Computed example of a mutant assay.
Amino acid sequence: MAKDIEVGGQGGFSAKDYHDPPPAPLIDAVEFTQWSLYRAIIAEFIATLLFLYITVLTVIGYKSQTDETKGGEVCGGVGILGIAWSFGGMIFVLVYCTAGISGGHINPAVTFGLLLARKVSLVRAILYMAAQCLGAVCGCWLVKAFQSAYYSKYGGGANELSAGYSKGTGLVAEIIGTFVLVYTVFSATDPKRNARDSHVPVLAPLPIGFAVFMVHLATIPITGTGINPARSFGAAVIYGKEKAWDDHWIFWAGPFIGAAIAAFYHQYILRAAAAKALGSFRSSSHM
């Protein structure tokens, strides 16, 4: 039973009992008859398109401004810090805009983690991932259409393993980076926490955006920072050079493994197992 909680000396209020929502079905044929599904798919497509358009343009713009052969300066442009802000800021904006429509995934790894936690159905997850990948391809195509001369010259924003790093290092960087992101998503959108702290839903996009920003600061020198298979896939498809595909598997395997670990950690260690352990302790204690 929930207990009365004293708030700021102003008196008490009765906290509502909280119950976890039921797990989403793996396959729900009814979803295909609902406009909300198709609206969400469109939202994921457009959000991922905008995400890739802005961020890849930022990457290419930075490289062109620091190209000394073209009169650029080594310290010119937005720098790595600016690139990280571009990715984190766009995620913040797009999650804020689409959270009420599709959940604001904008990343197959996030969708995969939520699928494992039974937060979305298998049907919705597959359609989301397809929309995200297609949106990423279209976003990169727009960049190439507007900046064709610079696009190929400066790598098309494609993720590549940097020289001096092994494939194992790149894979681990992607796993840990995606774990940070997906763990933040679970924590920021935890319905139990939202029921307790009414301000959390308003702030949810902010920590998610900051997580993307911080991970980019750490891993841009290693892999260019994927942590989003759609982002890596879209850039590789439009750029089309062999180098972009050489280690492409890292940018799928790493994020999916990281998302799976984050889902397990949050759902079965922090939430379920901890609650059961606490209940067992209370039932066995002598008052």
Rank of each mutant, 00 (worst) to 15 (best):
C97A: 15
G104Y: 05
S102E: 13
A109T: 02
M90F: 00
F92H: 02
Y96R: 05
G100M: 12
H105M: 08
M90W: 00
A117P: 09
G88M: 06
V110P: 09
T98L: 07
A109V: 04
L114H: 14
G103W: 02
S86W: 09
N107V: 09
G88E: 08
K119E: 13
Y96G: 02
M90S: 07
S86R: 04
L116D: 03
V95Q: 01
R118V: 07
V95T: 10
F87W: 14
I101V: 15
A117V: 11
G104A: 14
F87M: 01
L114F: 15
L94G: 06
M90D: 02
Y96L: 11
R118A: 15
V120N: 13
A99Y: 14
M90L: 12
V120R: 04
G88S: 01
F112P: 06
L114Q: 14
C97M: 15
G89M: 01
L114V: 13
P108T: 13
F112I: 12
I106T: 08
G100D: 13
G104I: 11
Y96D: 02
S86D: 07
A109C: 05
G89H: 02
L115P: 11
G88Y: 09
L116C: 10
G104L: 10
L115A: 13
I91P: 00
R118F: 09
G113I: 08
H105K: 10
G104W: 04
